[in-house]
């Protein structure tokens, strides 16, 4: 399948976006690096055609890296959800700077808010959920499960490669299908004080998880 812009152009645009002004540790606010976001979204569009002309949900959108990338790849509309007001303020700035007008943000707690009237409303759900390494183990799986309820097709989600077998187990348990569609390397800058090294590399999987009726 084709994409309306080139990968390099997409990455170039995403590289200009503003990030978190004061990242919050309890929310695990790490920015999705522009390179990772661009490769992930380009893969989602070119392999599955899951962005162009689609109704997309970005769950835990943060400053909007995935939302803006999806929009640049031709999404019909993106609904972007986040719990954090400051992150959404940066998202609004990013929308103004890029002139993108088909992203709509809602402030809510994705895990408890149940804000959508209907299940399976969205064509595509995107997420880069909190990895759940701190005091909230399993939060990434909760994001995934709720994301699945909201899509008629697939959830595309980034997870640490070290959790691969755990996710496989969960997918079986839920009776859904899923596979890793790209392996990426996440270069986390030392955002927080407890990070001793300047940067550390984390291997990340891009998962496509879908309802059993979807090929």
């Amino acid at each position: 399948m084709s994409a309306v812009i080139k990968l390099k152009t997409l990455e170039g645009h995403l590289g200009t976006l503003s990030g978190f002004s004061e990242p919050k540790l309890q929310l695990e606010q790490y920015e999705t690096p522009a390179h990772i976001a661009a490769v992930a979204l380009y893969t989602i569009q070119t392999q599955f055609g899951a962005l162009e002309n689609k109704l997309v949900l970005d769950a835990g959108c943060g400053t909007g890296m995935l939302s803006l990338g999806a929009s640049l790849l031709g999404a019909g509309t993106v609904v972007a959800l986040d719990i954090d007001e400051l992150a959404l303020e940066v998202l609004q700035e990013n929308l103004e700077d890029t002139g993108v007008t088909n992203i709509d943000a809602v402030q809510c707690d994705f895990l408890s808010s149940n804000i959508c009237r209907w299940n399976n409303y969205f064509d595509t759900v995107l997420m880069n959920p909190p990895f759940g390494t701190k005091n909230n183990a399993g939060i990434d799986m909760k994001f995934l499960k709720i994301g699945l309820d909201l899509t008629s097709d697939s959830v595309y989600s980034l997870h640490k490669s070290s959790t691969r077998s755990h996710i496989q187990k969960k997918i079986k348990e839920w009776g859904v299908k899923g596979s890793v569609i790209a392996e990426l390397r996440y270069n986390l800058p030392a955002t927080y004080k407890f990070h001793r090294q300047q940067t550390r590399d984390i291997d990340v999987d891009l998962w496509r998880i879908n309802h059993p009726s979807i090929e």
Partner: peptide, 8 residues
């Protein structure tokens, strides 16, 4: 600023 706050 265009964003509904659905937090409870």
């Amino acid at each position: 600023k265009g964003i509904p706050n659905m937090l409870l």
